[in-house]
Write a protein that binds this DNA or RNA. Structure first.
Lengths: 311, 311
DNA sequence: CTTTGCAAG
DNA sequence: CTTGTAAAG
């Protein structure tokens, strides 16, 4: 292209190569930053039957409770959620009972799964006001069920999944497992469930789907969570099989991150990623009243996300 | 004995067995608690040629510096030491240069040895105002020199050793190594040095020698640091080979602990041990002006100890 | 109880 | 940078 040609003939190191600028800046046209103050619809009326779901990768539940900014209480009062899904609880099975006690009154139904292969790693949960019709742990494939990555609860009108997709890791050493094993297995599991009821998957899916979902797309092409392989897997296994990215549907041009690495103080500078999602069966997508992010809640490198569903 | 007979015929569980009481209480007659305010001699005059040595098991030097209560400065101002010996620096060789920078002006001679077999473990040092005539690291026996347990510096009139004797460990798994290998090797090494000059060994010798040196002798008969084996080894390898326990010589009936485990808040209740010593060649013992403890200096589970030597 | 190192994110 | 381990004291 003309731009590329220009770059080749540039002689000063301080001259910006136009195509670099274009790559980085072009998709930002028309994007705006997510602001929960202005971008959420008015509170849903009590007269509209609805359900409030939340999800949070807490990055170690014991640490969070110690900091006393877990604020399940705050969250409950502020959002009045019906169900809270957690990821990266990092609990061991022996910790669960003690933790369960320390939870909020009124949420008496909680379902926990822990990694048994690596202690203090991964771990997911669902905490609910309503008692689910059924609960299952994992994918039902023992090879993929030792790390406590999935809890499924069944409600009257849908299945809800709290999931923590394997991080591809430093050196992308687990990328292959992730895209050839986990993602397809999870996708198949969801399609199976969908034969009886719509499905909502929430949690840390460890993938920023598009350039809009990450602060520095060019610099992260080979970073776990933004490789082409993971993005394609996300596309084909989930979106193309009929699960709707509810936040993106509601906000096509909004930059809404849910994760900011601790490593470079990313939260202050908003160098974030959108890794946490509510994906809903197409048949339910029009019941979504609000798919939102609470970027101001601290205590983890992820922020909580929420979904208000009309019933 | 009559007492034992009595115990055998006692029928109530609450009846104290007299011999137990005797064992525990008898040696305490005439003991008093060490108080540096009242038990230290008046400050030595500048007209008396002397040298001030200090020693401290710092339990991790980086943590101590972070807490900013290392107070080498405070110590220097308060005690104006000439030489400071450290144990359990827990440094790696790669950390030493950075740490050396952060030390006090005026102590430009410092000698460090680190564990190369277990990183972040053990580690000893000597920090000196005066430049030593020579320095050696370890015992000169490669089998015993991978853990950074000994630095020897040579001054005009004596050798000074900063030593960290191996802890016998949980289950006393290292007791045998300690008493059959390390203690005799160290003792032999000291006797070798002594052929040219008197020797002073300071540091954490990981042994409370007598019942007076530990808060609960009866309860610690099989605890690392107070087994009969370690106490006998201390006696035969060091005391009986002509090294004088300078604190005990100066204070025959004083309870002066230098270590209080973190595990049961022992410092508050003074549930301590005397594990840190200055042992001096008999030929120097009468040059000791004061062998003391600074129990109020925090930042480690050990307190610093000091020795003022007339020259 | 506290310091280390290490794996993991 | 922060969470968890574990070893060590």
């Amino acid at each position: 292209t003309t731009s590329n040609m220009k770059a080749h003939v540039s002689v000063g190191l301080s001259v910006e190569e136009p195509w670099t600028v274009l790559t980085h800046k072009k998709p930002q046209k028309g994007w705006t930053a997510y602001n929960p103050e202005t971008m959420r619809p008015p509170p849903i009326g009590a007269s509209t039957p609805h359900m409030k779901l939340m999800s949070w990768n807490v990055n170690g539940l014991r640490a969070l409770l110690k900091l006393e900014n877990f604020s399940a209480l705050q969250l409950a009062q502020r959002e009045n959620f019906d169900v809270l899904c957690l990821q990266e609880t990092k609990l061991q099975e022996k910790d669960v009972d003690a933790i369960r006690q320390s939870l909020l009154q009124g949420y008496d139904n909680s379902y926990w799964t822990c990694s048994v292969s690596k202690l203090g790693y991964s771990g997911t949960a669902v905490i609910s006001r309503i008692k689910p019709l059924s609960v299952r742990y994992g994918l039902g494939i023992s090879d993929h069920d030792t790390e406590g990555r999935l809890v499924t609860v069944e409600f009257d009108n849908f299945y809800l999944l709290s999931g923590y997709v394997p991080n591809s890791g430093d050196g992308l050493r687990r990328l292959s497992y992730r895209i050839t094993q986990w993602d397809p297995s999870l996708s198949n599991y969801m399609k199976d469930l969908e034969r009886s009821k719509p499905v909502i998957l929430t949690g840390d899916l460890n993938c920023a789907h598009q350039e809009i979902d990450i602060w520095n797309p060019a610099g992260n092409k080979r970073s776990a969570g933004f490789t082409d392989e993971e993005r394609r897997s996300f596309q084909t296994n989930f979106l193309e099989r009929g699960f709707v990215d509810t936040f993106r549907k509601q906000h096509p041009n909004v930059v809404g991150y849910t994760y900011w690495g601790y490593r470079h103080g990313g939260r202050k500078t908003n160098k974030g990623w959108r890794l946490d999602y509510f994906l809903a069966s197409e048949s339910m997508a029009n019941q979504v009243y609000d798919s939102y992010i609470l970027p101001d809640i601290a205590g983890s490198d992820h922020s909580p996300i929420g979904l208000i569903l009309k019933l």
